[in-house]
Simulated assay, not measured.
Amino acid sequence: MLDTTPPSLDAPTLTALTTVLAPLGRLEHAEQLTGGMFATTYRATLADGTQVVVKTAPTATDRLLTYELDLLRTEALVYDLAVDRPDLLMPRVLLTDLTRNVLPSDVVVVTHLDGTPLVDLGELDEGTTRTVERDLGAFMARLHTVHGTRFGYPNEATGLHAATWPEAFGAMAGALLDDAAAWGTELPAARVRAALHRHAAALAEVRTPVLVHTDLWAGNLFVEPATGELVGVIDTERAVWGDPLLELAGADQMGRGPVPAALLDGYTSAGGSFALGTPAGDARLWLYRMYMSLVLTVEIAPRGYTGDWLVGHRAAAWANLHAALDALD
């Protein structure tokens, strides 16, 4: 008898999960996990006690932004790239179902990570905060040793990739402006395009496409609660082949101040080197902060966000967008 609480899952979902997981074993228990705002994720326990994580993409594909097309396939790709790199701390892909026959979307099943999501630990003391930041910086440096053959989003469906970073990043930002227009979201599009044009030479200094997670916020980091040591990283579906500096904007998508010193120290100690402190590097960081603010603003309409938090969220993203554009002017 399947134990499905809490929360309970409907019969069609249970049947689909049972079918998807059959190659791994018999499903005993399943529950939907909360916290994500894009995919739907389940924790499943098999008959032998093994826990796995099942992730499914949204089924309303008409409400996806351009860069979100076939996004879950990028997650599986990145995890496979990390399979021989235990230092990248990622789950292992156990199976994928990209047929969309069992469930009406792509499905990726991965191993269950140990540790506790950093977001669940609440306010940290100074020592633990420094440990987290230093470990995160070191992780970024290790991740950025993985190189690609072209720039942009890995998933072919987006079309957002190119031989050079200015071309790819320009296409990525342009797609967000097009998505905004399609959803009736007002943006300072002319200023965005002018900033891209003005700083094209800074973007052109990036000549090697490295693997950038782009979403290293506290919900995607698993830590050892007692020490803050980073032990796991998840949710790589938004990964990009691009500039290492993009990672800093992705890890602090509402930030516009200095990068934490402990994070930079961790990055340097693991052999990495950001281009911060140079005119081109600083301009690129502002471009990437602009980009993240665009994402946060444009996704509101297609996601159908509601709630008391939304007014403040929209205002903060809008303010950060204009702060970045002002800096780029």
Rank of each mutant, 00 (worst) to 15 (best):
D3V: 03
D3M: 00
D3S: 06
P7V: 13
L14I: 09
V20F: 01
L21I: 08
A22N: 00
E31T: 11
Q32I: 04
M37W: 09
Y42E: 08
P58K: 06
D62C: 02
L64G: 08
L69E: 15
L71A: 15
L77A: 13
V78P: 05
M90F: 02
D97E: 07
V102H: 04
H112E: 14
T131L: 00
R134Q: 12
A141Q: 14
R142D: 07
H144E: 15
H147N: 07
G148N: 10
R150D: 13
R150I: 04
P154N: 09
A157N: 13
T164C: 12
G170C: 13
A173Q: 04
G174I: 03
G174M: 03
D178M: 03
D178V: 14
R193E: 14
R198T: 15
P209C: 01
V212W: 06
V212F: 08
W217L: 12
A218I: 04
N220V: 15
G228C: 06
G228Y: 08
V231W: 01
I234H: 00
G250C: 09
A251I: 01
A251R: 02
M254C: 05
R256W: 08
R256K: 01
G257H: 05
P258T: 07
A261L: 05
A262L: 10
A270M: 11
G271T: 10
G271Y: 11
G272F: 08
F274H: 09
F274P: 01
A275I: 00
M290V: 07
M290G: 09
Y291S: 10
L294V: 07
L294T: 05
E299C: 11
G312L: 06
N320D: 14
